[in-house]
Structure formats: structure tokens, C-alpha cells
Design a protein around this nucleic acid. Structure first.
Lengths: 131, 131
DNA sequence: CATAGTGTACTATGCTTACTAATACAGCTA
DNA sequence: TAGCTGTATTAGTAAGCATAGTACACTATG
């Protein structure tokens, strides 16, 4: 009489965000926050599919993207596991954030906003984002 | 022998960005930078469609979105014109930027990044975005 | 009044892409 | 052998984009 409550994953079936993307985001955040530890085995494609009541292919697609990003690695016949170096994962995420900030700045500049103006906006978001 | 070079618009037909979206972006930047002035008349739906060799419906869709955002207003039988208050347009753009910054911060926080860490990243983008 | 130009609305079609599903295949391990 | 893994292939569904054609109502011009 086991209760498999592996549900650390929060999925919104009514969201416009694709299911596989939500899986990816979940795993990414869980690894970066240290909830999922290096070398830890992830739920199998079929098991997680059953648990979340979605198609195994959707999980497989999510795992494939996670593997492409280097966050996990998969061994056919064995399973899928969190990648080893947590510091590397964090650095990769940092670079990704930098890219997004860079794009935002560049677009803002093309609209004629100055650097000090943007910095002020950035700071004004600081307290607001606590919620 | 007139040469109608109204082409302040830069359109990339091979881009994945929808044509109508490129029109919107063009008008937005041109108004915010003061190239297009308040009350100035925009090229007609059909004229711009001819000039850019795209369908009039695509231009109409772009103008409709621009009107919904309040950047322009259209008078059936007259034409389409840049909205009056440039300061308002700029403030609207500012708020939109704030929204994007807010989202970025919130997502970064959910990945376990601290405020000082994010500020440092933000500053590091400052010189990089000059190009 | 007639004409031409304006924005707008509507339907239909082709095309591409993204997402999800169904099925089958191949490897590992007890 | 049996049952679990990940993976590959194919197909169906939906949505977005652009085009085309047609029609309507309004406005300015002559």
C-alpha cells in the first residue's frame, strides 16, 4: 500500500504554456534550487506520464530538451538522471539570463530610452517583485 | 516623374517575425524616436501594401493593433494618423518595459538568484549593449 | 452627383509550425 | 523471459500567418 506522491511538479493543464515546457521549467528550477540533486534519478517517462495524466511522448520531449541543455542525461534502459555539476548548471542559467537582459536593453535603446532611465526602471521593479 | 520613397519601414521578408508585427514595431519605434510626429498621416493601407509588396489585410492588421495600443488613430474615409500626445506614448512604452523587467526578475528569483546577483548581471549588460 | 481614395469587415484558402497522441522499436536488468 | 527503461516514427489536431477576393461605408475632389 504505497502512496507514490512524486508530485513535486506543478502543471497547469489550462495554461497556454506547452505541457512539455512546463516540465522543463519545473526540472530546471528544482535543480537550480537544489531540490533535485546531482545524479538523482528522475521519474521514468511513463511513470511521470501516468502521474500527470499526459502522454509519455510529452515527457520524453521535455527530457530530450533538458538533455540538450545539459541539465540531465539519459541512459536507454536505465533511466534519466540529473547532471553532475550544479555549479555549471547555475552558470548556464546565468548566461541565459544575461542574454535576456541584453535583448531587453537593446530593444529599449532602440525605442530611445537612456541607460539611467532604464536603471531607474530596473530598480523600481526590485521591491515590486517580492510578491 | 515622382519617386515615392516612403520607405522608412525596414521589413525582412525572410524573418520568422510576422510581417504585421514588423510593421507594428517599425511604427512604434519611429513614433517614440520622434521620426513620426503626432498628427502626422501614415501611408494608406493600400499604398503601403503596394510599396512593400504585401497584402493590404496585413497592413490593416498592423494598423488595428497600433490603434488598439493607442499609438495611432484611424478615421474611415480619411486615413490613419499618429496619436497626439507623444509623452503618453512614451509612458505607455515605459510601463510595458516595466512589465517585462518585472517578469524577468520574478523568473530569476524562482531560479534562486538573489537581488544583488541580478543587479550585477544587469550592470554587466550596460556596456555590452552599446553595439 | 460621380469618382476615387480612405478604413473596415467578412469569408475562404493555403501554408507552416507547434503540440500531442498512438504505435513500434531497442536496450538494460533482475 | 519479463518488465522496466529511453527512443524513433508516424499521424492527427489546432493555431497562427499571409493571401485573395469581395463588399460596405465614409470622405474629399471635381
Amino acid at each position: 500500500m504505497e502512496r507514490e506522491e512524486n508530485t513535486v511538479f506543478s502543471i497547469d493543464y489550462k495554461s497556454r504554456i506547452p505541457l512539455y515546457q512546463q516540465i522543463v521549467d519545473n526540472v530546471e528550477k528544482l535543480t537550480l534550487r537544489g531540490i533535485l540533486l546531482p545524479e538523482q534519478q528522475l521519474p521514468s517517462v511513463r511513470a511521470l506520464a501516468m502521474e500527470l495524466s499526459i502522454n509519455p511522448n510529452t515527457i520524453a520531449k521535455a527530457y530530450a530538451e533538458l538533455e540538450a541543455r545539459g541539465l540531465i542525461y539519459s541512459l536507454p534502459g536505465r533511466g534519466s538522471f540529473v547532471s553532475g555539476d550544479q555549479a555549471d548548471l547555475r552558470n548556464a542559467a546565468r548566461e541565459q539570463l544575461r542574454e535576456q537582459m541584453h535583448s531587453l536593453r537593446k530593444e529599449a535603446q532602440s525605442m530611445g530610452f537612456s541607460d539611467p532611465e532604464l536603471d531607474e526602471l530596473w530598480q523600481s521593479c526590485r521591491e515590486e517583485a517580492k510578491a
